[in-house]
């Protein structure tokens, strides 16, 4: 009886502890988020960014192809015409309004794929939590890359 208990109950418990005990001496695979952050993969697709050219002009031309490709219909683009006095992008057209509803976005990256100028890119910033629904509609100002430093025109 006792031997049976020892074989069926105690031994497996000890085996289990042995297994976890072994891990004590290995490297830890968890990180202390948020103080510590794990390196992301190069093709990670998280928060969108509207890219700029080196001279500071926006890459986005407001063509709405991203909105057309979006399966979640979460992108809204309103275009307008560049003038020589007020130039946002090279060429004739720029996005006057560019909004992404992050609650709807499924981060599929189709927008990035559809973009003819490489303007909309999904980068690695994944901390997108917020408190208000309204705050999840990212506007163009929020999405645009900061101006490159060297191009103080």
């Amino acid at each position: 009886m006792i031997t049976e208990v020892g074989k069926d109950v105690v031994l497996p418990i000890l085996k289990g502890f042995l297994l976890t005990g072994k891990r004590l001496f290995r490297d830890k695979s968890t990180v202390m988020y948020p103080e510590q952050k794990r390196e992301s993969y190069p093709r990670t697709r998280w928060r969108h960014v509207l890219a700029r050219y080196e001279n500071g002009l926006e890459k986005c031309i407001g063509c709405s192809l991203c909105a057309g490709a979006c399966p979640a219909r979460c992108i809204y683009v309103e275009a307008a015409e560049n003038t020589n006095e007020e130039r946002y992008s090279p060429g004739e057209r720029y996005a006057m309004r560019y909004e992404i509803n992050m609650l709807r976005c499924i981060f599929c990256g189709f927008c990035q794929e559809a973009c003819p100028t490489g303007a909309i890119v999904l980068r690695s910033d994944f901390e997108l939590a917020d408190y208000q629904r309204e705050d999840f509609v990212y506007t163009k100002e929020m999405l645009l890359e900061p101006m490159p430093v060297q191009s103080e025109r």
Partner: peptide, 9 residues
């Protein structure tokens, strides 16, 4: 209509 919308919009 210039630049006001794309057909799929």
């Amino acid at each position: 209509y210039r630049f006001r919308a794309r057909p799929w919009d």
